[in-house]
Amino acid sequence: MKKVDEIIRMTDITKTYGEGEAETTVLRDIDLVVKKGEFLGITGRSGSGKSTLMHIIGLLDSPTSGNYVLNGTDTSKLKEDELAFRRNKEIGFVFQSFNLLPKLSALENVILPAIYAGINNKERTEKATMLLTMLGLENHIGKKPNQMSGGQQQRVAIARALMNDPELILADEPTGNLDTKSGDDVMKTLRHLNDEGKTVIIITHEHDIAIQAKKLIQLEDGMLMHERKKTVAT
């Protein structure tokens, strides 16, 4: 283990989709270091690769080339089940499009990560109830996603991300679907989590939200980032 205060170290990360003529490079030569306890904002115009980068950070996707060290471990060396273990314990992911299971209640959705962590039923139900209450959803615990507003669903998704007490919280446009008031609430929650010592990375293209982050990076300008189509592979 080296440099414990670093949670993320990315070197020369590249991501391409497709092959031959259809090949698209979405991320190019990304170098990124995030320290523990940081609150990092990522901005950039639509299609600039923000979500793609976040998925790689969250171990949901793998880079085409480059090196990604998470918490001192080279992620390219991790086996599939080890990746699953880390996604479960170390990372809380809030998706751009909520990704709640439509047939499960708010409570059941929040509990999911704890099921795969092997936490017993009583303990995880208490924890999930506590989280939902903390996020102001105590009256919506038994509701299905389609019985809730967008803001409420977003908060369920946040509660789920917090379920296993991860060190790293990744939020992909957590306020994108919300009005100003609900957006502020979500940001308040994330800032609060950051104050408690968690590392938070948030994607947004709203300026007011972006400036709330302690540190801001931009895809395209600040980073070595291109979006470009190759014609013929030579």
């Binding site: 273990f85 479960n88 992911f93 990560p113 795969y116 962590a117 789920r160």
Partner: peptide, 16 residues
């Protein structure tokens, strides 16, 4: 498939 993807994202192993 989406559900499977989500479960995996939340930490489900292949055997689960």
């Amino acid at each position: 498939t989406k559900e499977i993807g989500l479960r995996k994202a939340l930490g489900a192993k292949r055997n689960d």
